[in-house]
């Protein structure tokens, strides 16, 4: 197994799938000549040419819709948003076209498209460039929503997303592109959609984390181990469809649940997980579910405020201790 970054893992996934299937193409702002704003598409133009690696104008609604139309007649587009903040301009095409085409045509069309790019906070880019939008997209039947947290998951899930016959919103994290990890060798390595992963086993408290909060939860678990608390970290990896069974099984074992997320709490994925755990494992809970979410405020620019707006290791430790009635 090679140790690579998430950036390289995503690059490998696209490269391998483009070699495998002539119908796969990548379109987005700065994906070709500039090699990607975050260099995720490095070298792809050189290998596949400008027919399959396409620099688009800054026209998110337009090229998102173009991708859906191309998918309707058999291509498998990968549409990159330079960041998911800009996908807000394209939501009409993602939600009203991609998510609903199959249903409202009575099953006549499949829409094999991936919308991908960085989601969530970056470093001091303020309110309009630091938004975690997974609860928006996860809200809609017809979409699948994926959030990898490791290089292996990033590669295996992206390959599965590209091969999938439905629209997949694939949410990366700008802060995490440089994170390293082991990735299994071989072009057949896939991670299935809709399967959660227990990133660390434990017995006293479950922490459900996704994307950026997974490494934070794992660090918090190390810290808590020193304090005599055994934490299980569950990463759903796919938000829709959600593998609630793995989460519920973990809660049945630990009887306590903390949900760590960088998105806002209100109407968020954490609220959904909390509700489902209540529905499926109410009698197993020894404490109310605790959500640790991004602050209920737009993202500030100032470094100190930005730090306060996001979950961190220290606050995850505190939350686990709280639901364990240790403080």
């Amino acid at each position: 197994m090679a140790v690579i970054t998430i950036r390289e893992a995503l690059n490998q996934a696209m490269r391998e799938e483009m070699r495998r299937d002539e119908g796969v193409f990548l379109m987005g702002e700065e994906v070709a000549a500039y090699q990607g704003a975050y260099k995720v598409s490095k070298g792809l133009l050189e290998e596949f040419g400008d027919k399959r690696v396409v620099d688009s104008p800054i026209t998110e609604l337009g090229f998102a819709g173009l991708g859906v139309g191309a998918a309707m007649v058999g291509l498998r587009p990968i549409i990159e948003f330079m960041t998911f903040n800009f996908s807000i301009l394209a939501t009409d095409q993602i939600i009203n076209s991609a998510a609903k085409m199959r249903y409202m045509s009575g099953g006549q069309f499949k829409i094999p498209i991936v919308f991908r790019g960085p989601n969530g906070s970056a470093f001091q880019v303020s309110s309009q460039h630091s938004q975690a939008l997974e609860s928006w997209y996860a809200h809609f039947p017809g979409l699948k929503v994926v959030m990898p947290s490791t290089p292996a998951d990033a590669k295996g899930l992206l390959k599965s997303a590209i091969r999938d016959d439905d629209p997949v919103v694939f949410l990366e994290q700008e802060r995490m592109y440089g994170n390293k990890g082991e990735v299994p060798d071989g072009e057949d390595f896939l991670v299935p959609l809709g399967v959660a992963d227990v990133k660390r086993e434990g017995t006293d408290c479950t922490v459900v984390a996704r994307s950026m909060t997974v490494p934070l939860a794992l660090k918090a678990a190390e810290e808590l181990e020193k304090q005599g608390v055994s934490v299980e970290v569950v990463d759903p990896r796919t938000i829709r469809p959600l593998d609630i069974e793995t989460i519920v099984n973990s809660v049945k074992k630990t009887n306590r649940l903390v949900i760590a997320e960088e998105s806002h709490a209100f109407c968020g994925v954490g609220a959904e997980i909390s509700a489902q755990v209540m529905e499926h494992a109410f009698d197993y809970l020894d404490a109310p579910v605790k959500r640790l979410s991004g602050a209920d405020a737009p993202m500030p620019y100032a470094k100190n405020l930005e730090r306060l707006a996001l979950p961190d290791v220290e606050r995850i430790v505190k939350a686990v201790r709280e639901v364990s009635y240790l403080d």
Partner: peptide, 24 residues
């Protein structure tokens, strides 16, 4: 016949994509 679409103008990018695909 790739459909009747309900959001004003929403079908225009879709058609652009179908044209992209046939040229592709």
């Amino acid at each position: 016949f790739l459909g009747g679409h309900g959001i004003v103008g929403g079908q225009i990018p879709l058609a652009t994509g179908t044209a992209y695909a046939t040229k592709y």
